[in-house]
Nucleic acid binder design. Structure first.
Lengths: 212, 212
DNA sequence: CTTCAATTGGAGTGAACGCTACAGCAATGA
DNA sequence: TCATTGCTGTAGCGTTCACTCCAATTGAAG
């Protein structure tokens, strides 16, 4: 078992360096955006020369995309709906929202960078932007599933609209927190948001259900 | 009346040039953000040399700030609550939201730039960022006034929280539209949003009102 | 016509940008 | 031992950046 894969982990320094570069890059790009992220700054922050960065990543675009890709799993992990034993549907939904909010407070760089990329309109779209939009799309689908799971009466179309609305507002609340800092309780705001959307969904379902 | 101000408008070309520079700058900065806005690009788009830009504006920071300042009034104009003759309170609120949405669809550059500035965290904060945050704060106060006007029972604190929530979600919905393009109806989304917030406000007021 | 201030045009500054070339080095496999 | 591989260090390439200098132009005022 010591040498079945001869082409693996010959030098462990490589993967660690890659992480250090990504750590530096996520921080800087999360603060300054795409154009504001200079290779020199990333190099200075991670302590590795520019040539090392270009050994690990094809170019700046590739680096930014890798930054977002790495945060993907962490992000999805926070997006789980607690099981039925966790309480009423409303409690489960608010708990899920609080979970997401907490992960955003802990590591805001990912979403901050993603939203900046989403807002930018540069002639050649950075790969990181499309990757982020994919993440967002997966998120939207998960929310849609949660809605249809908790409110089976609801038709697919309304559920999707509500999910779009829910995700969009979540982005806005995140930005609000970035602006106001600790002055606003993101967890509380997310819980309020989850409650409003959930109640709106209930009312909508009841309305369309009564017509049959 | 033809020459009471001898030091005014000697050469009309100046003010027009200033407008052309700002027109170019709002477009470019709305697409590429602060760092992505190069003086050379603005110069090329407005047809004036860099020296003219620097004659009208102190530096790049001053230019970006001026871009936001100029959009201030246009923005506030769209933020008016229709009078009582316009219908029920809910109709008035949704009409106001639709109005804002329309103005955002027409001229998205202002808010796109503002949100990018708001998200960025550069060592020396651009003046344009603080100007935008001021605009946002005025907006939030106006929304607060609308809520307390339409629902007098509501206490000031809850009204403010709801206003923060309403403005934040509006930003998020705008971003959603920027991502999805014409695939999402921003006006409809804003109307839905206004309705949800209004109903939530009604329920909150009723709840606290019943306790006395 | 002369004067003068308001603008424009163009050339140019040093610094920072993304990125590359290449030598050097440490560990591995033969 | 020695060539190979994986990664680092240095130096520097061409380009673009924000910004400046200053001569030229233009319309109004005296």
């Amino acid at each position: 078992m010591t040498k079945p894969q001869p082409t693996r982990k010959k030098r462990a320094n490589g993967v660690e360096s890659r992480q250090r570069i990504l750590d530096a890059a996520v921080e800087i790009s999360g603060e300054r955006g795409y154009e504001g992220t200079s290779i020199a700054a990333v190099s200075a922050k991670c302590g590795l020369p520019a040539s090392s960065i270009y050994w690990h990543f094809k170019d700046k675009d590739d680096l930014i995309a890798a930054v977002i890709e790495r945060s993907f799993e962490t992000w999805l992990a926070a997006l789980e709906l607690p099981g039925e034993e966790a309480g009423t549907p409303l409690e489960r939904v608010t708990a899920m929202a609080a979970n997401v909010a907490k992960s955003l407070v802990d590591e805001p760089d990912f979403l901050r960078l993603g939203l900046m990329l989403a807002l930018e309109r540069r002639p050649v779209e950075p790969r990181g932007r499309t990757v982020f939009l994919d993440v967002r799309e997966v998120t939207r689908q998960k929310i849609t599933e949660v809605i249809t799971l908790l409110i089976p009466d609801m038709d697919e179309d309304t559920a999707r609209t509500l999910a779009v609305y829910a995700v969009a507002c979540a982005d806005g609340l995140f930005i609000q927190r970035e602006i106001t800092g600790d002055g606003v309780d993101l967890v509380a705001m997310f819980e309020l948001h989850a409650q409003l959307v959930y109640e709106a969904a209930l009312r909508t379902a009841a309305r369309s259900g009564n017509h049959d």
